[in-house]
């Protein structure tokens, strides 16, 4: 059986909020290393990969592999019944029909319990190769969100160009064009504001801003975001979570012009 207790329901609430507009029905794959999720959007352009390691829970118990097929809009309805600070316990039997979510108030005696019916989801699983990216940009997540929002007003696509000079987000649309260039920046007082560009070779790729803006819904989960690029491969946008856990988004590039 599965029994996983999170100190704060907020983490799962935010993760589900960040991905529910991109993917609808997902398997939460549970085993002794934690809870993982991989799902593609309907158009097979973007992929969500989440890993909540067992260390993120206390306690965590999962005796065998269990796939919890859950509709995210149903899960959202139930998670709305939890306060951010509630302790959240997820329970399921070995061959479950339902998953049980229990919310306990940390400062009162309230205890709420909900069951969500599970679905059989036959999902294609993609193998994501270990990649040494040509460029990795680490920047404040709100800054990335702002750039995506601002450029979305002008165009559907953004080109991301990394050179030793910095990273340039540029777009071209009907009303005109725009570009935001960032250089490496280190702020000792405010390390959350740091911008780091690790570059082994220059990269230039074009992506849909609609998807990038969607990924930015995860901005509340981490102060900084890693944007990993190599020519001719999908972009990786990664939000690091506590206990070595993560929420990653992959986006297939736009090709040819």
């Amino acid at each position: 059986m599965l029994e996983a207790r999170l100190e704060q329901a907020e983490l799962l609430k935010k993760v589900v909020d960040a991905i529910k507009d991109l993917v609808q029905d997902c398997n939460f794959d549970c085993n002794d290393s934690g809870v993982a999720l991989q799902a593609m959007d309907n158009s097979h352009v973007a992929l969500v990969s989440m890993m909540l390691k067992s260390e993120a829970f206390s306690p965590f118990r999962c005796d065998r592999n269990i796939a919890l097929g859950i509709n995210l809009s149903s899960l959202t309805k139930v998670l709305r019944c939890a306060q951010n600070n509630d302790i959240l316990t997820v329970k399921a039997e070995d061959a479950p029909d339902v998953v049980n979510l229990m919310f306990e108030s940390s400062d009162s005696d309230r205890l709420s319990e909900y069951d969500i019916k599970l679905m059989d989801i036959d999902q294609e699983h993609l193998g994501i190769p270990e990649t040494e990216y040509a460029a990795t940009v680490t920047m404040p997540s709100p800054e990335f969100q702002r750039i995506c929002r601002d450029l979305s007003a002008l165009s559907e696509s953004v080109s991301i160009e990394c050179t030793k000079e910095g990273v340039k987000f540029a777009c071209n649309g009907d009303i005109g064009s725009g570009a935001v260039t960032l250089r490496s920046h280190s702020d000792v007082e405010n390390p959350d504001q740091n911008i780091k560009i690790d570059l082994t070779e220059p990269v230039a790729l074009t992506f849909s801003l609609k998807y990038l803006s969607n990924f930015c819904k995860a901005s509340g989960l981490a102060k900084s975001v890693n944007i990993c690029l190599s020519n001719e491969v999908p972009l990786l946008v990664e939000y690091g979570l506590a206990a070595n856990s993560y929420l990653r988004f992959y986006l297939a590039p736009k090709i040819g012009d």
Binding site: M40, S43, H44, V45, A46, L47, E124, H125, L126, G127, I128, P129, S157, T206, S208, V233, P234, Y250, A252, P253, K254, I255, G256, D257
Partner: peptide, 14 residues
């Protein structure tokens, strides 16, 4: 203009 590619062109089903 640029065409949107799909993930299967890069990641193989397992």
């Amino acid at each position: 203009s640029a065409q949107q590619s799909r993930l299967e062109g890069f990641f193989k089903p397992v």
